[in-house]
Each structure stands twice: as C-alpha cells, then as structure tokens.
C-alpha cells in the first residue's frame, strides 16, 4: 500500500534537518560545555581617543593639536578551562542541587497522581447524563490553554496573604516553605487536571454501550461498573497520560517563577529553575550545562518508558 521512491526523502528532509540544527546541535554543544569551566569577566581598559565634534572632525586645542579624551572600554572576555567531570562531581555536594531535586520530585510525585485521579473521577462524572455538558466541558478546557505565567501571577493574587480572597483561611500559602510548595502543586493541579479529564472523557465515550448493558444485565452496581468495565478499558490511556504528565511536570518552571519566585528561600525552586539561573543569571555556563545533562539522563528514563508504550501507537 505504501509507496516508495526517492522523493520521500525530499518531503522529509526539511523537517529532519531543522530538528538536527536546532535540537541536536545545541545538545551536542551543551555536552561540550559540561566539561568546561566557563568564566565571564569584564575587562576594563582605558584608552585615549581623539575628540570629535558634531561633524565628525577632530577637535583641535589651542596649539593646533587634536584633543584627546579618556575612554573606558569594557570588554567581555570568556575563558573556558577543561575540568573533566568536576562539574558533575560538584553537583553531588551542592545543597542547592539536592534541594532542587527534592522540590522537583515532591512536586511530580504529588501533583501528577492527584491530576490523574481527579481527572478520572471528573471524567466518570461527566460521562453521565448531565445538563449542559458541552458548556461545562468548554469551561473545563480553559485552564489547559491559559498562559502558565499569567496563571501563576493570578494565583499569586488569590493566595495573597493580606487581603486576598483566601486570606480568611489564615493559611500561609506563600510564606511558609511547605505551603508554598503545596500552592505550586495546587496551581498545577488546577491547570492540568482538566487535561487528564478531557483525555479520559474521550476514552470513556469510546467505550461501547453494549459493555455497560452487559454488565448491567449481570447485575453490576455502579462501583463494579467503574472497577470492572471502565478502569480496565482505560488502562492504556491512563499509562500514556501518566507518562506524558510526568515528562511535562519534570520541566516545571513557569508556575513557581510567577507564583513564588522559587521561594521562600529555595523551597519551591525546581531543577529547571536552578539550571536556568545558574546558566543565564549567574553565567556559570559549564556547571549549568552539566546540570541540564544530569536532568536529561533522568528524563530519558521516563522518555524510554513513554516511547516503548507509544511506539505501538504509530505502527
């Protein structure tokens, strides 16, 4: 059924070359950086330069000599020193790294299961005969596409401890380290439960009516129906959503950036925020690259699991 012919490579080539250029090349480059200590220094030099007037002509002094002025030249100098595995070793003893790993793992291990369970329960609820379902379903889609950074700031105003709408609870949503992490989790659950819900609802609606009928005839009650009919049929979908959410949740960045700024202290600073700051705020580029690679190695495990599952879908 499927065609062959050389032209197939012509169709495919632009996209492949593009991804090689903008994903594979940067990854190679950052692997190289991971073995170096990159230092950026600003060298300050003073130089005498001829003074120019508005027309660009040299200004002459009384003796007819060109006047000079002192100019300060700042030059950025990068030095790269090969240090082997030192960047990776440094991570092992860096408490900031340990803390970021703890934050990221806590986040993923609480938020993702919560999103799946809530999403599943909501899908079961919405799978029933409900008034105005299309409109309610549309409401539920909104969080998925809301700009995460804007969402973070909006929740910042909601969690605001002085005069915010939840201030009456007296909960230190943002100032207490444990609560701050919970707040990040709440926002993520708000944003991504609807995604799990939507996918599960689509899967549930694909379950043929006959199965429910058959179970009903066999005298199954609502709980049996959930456990014996819906859950088993949804297992493949659940696994895909789980892996997809895990891969995404490990990248956590936008929400804590807006909501807590990683704080208080570093209590909500996930790994990607630490790597970002190390690289592009403190310009410790080699160390940040090593961090990224360590991160990549962990995520590869998830990816491998994910693709083993996913490959079957593209047969």
């Amino acid at each position: 059924m499927r065609w062959t012919g050389k032209i197939r490579f012509l169709f495919l080539a632009p996209a492949v070359i593009w991804v090689l250029a903008f994903t594979v090349f940067p990854l190679g480059y950052s692997l190289y950086l991971a073995f170096y200590k990159i230092e950026q220094k600003v060298e300050v030099k003073r130089e005498k330069q001829p003074m120019l007037d508005a027309a660009g002509q040299p200004v002459l002094d009384d003796a007819g000599q060109p006047r000079t002025k002192n100019v300060v030249i700042k030059e950025q100098v990068n030095t790269a020193t090969f240090i082997g595995l030192d960047n990776f070793k440094r991570m092992l003893t860096d408490t900031q790294v340990h803390e970021a790993v703890r934050v990221t793992l806590t986040f993923v291990l609480i938020a993702v299961p919560l999103e799946l369970v809530l999403g599943f329960l909501l899908a079961v609820l919405f799978n029933q005969h409900i008034f105005g379902r299309p409109i309610l379903r549309a409401f539920m889609i909104l969080p998925i596409f809301a700009t995460p950074l804007a969402v973070g700031y909006t929740f910042f105003t909601i969690f605001y401890e002085v005069g915010g709408p939840l201030a009456w609870t007296g909960i230190p949503f943002l100032s207490n380290p444990t609560w701050a992490l919970m707040s990040v989790i709440i926002v993520d659950v708000w944003q991504w439960t609807p995604f799990c819900f939507l996918v599960f609802l689509a899967a549930l609606q694909g379950v043929p009516d006959e199965l429910y009928e058959a179970a009903r005839v066999d005298g199954a009650n609502a709980w049996d129906m959930l456990k014996e009919v819906m859950l088993p049929l949804l297992i493949p979908t659940i696994v895909i959503v789980l892996l997809l959410r895990m891969a995404e949740a490990l990248k956590l960045f936008d929400i804590p950036f807006a909501l807590t700024g990683g704080g208080p202290g570093v209590a909500t600073q996930p790994f990607s925020m630490l790597a970002f700051r190390t690289g592009l705020r403190f310009f410790d580029l080699g160390y940040a690259s090593a961090m990224s690679y360590a991160f990549l190695a962990v995520i590869m495990i998830v990816i491998t699991l994910f693709f083993r599952r996913l490959r079957a879908n593209y047969g």
Binding site: F22, T23, F25, P26, L27, Y29, S30, L33, L250, K251, F253, F271, S272, A275, F276, G279, L280, L285, A288, S289, S292, Y293, F295, L296, I299
Partner: peptide, 8 residues
C-alpha cells in the same frame, strides 16, 4: 527538557 537546550 527545554532547559537543556536553552543555554547552548
């Protein structure tokens, strides 16, 4: 993770 490519 995009943070792996952001620096290079």
């Amino acid at each position: 993770p995009p943070v792996a490519t952001v620096i290079p």
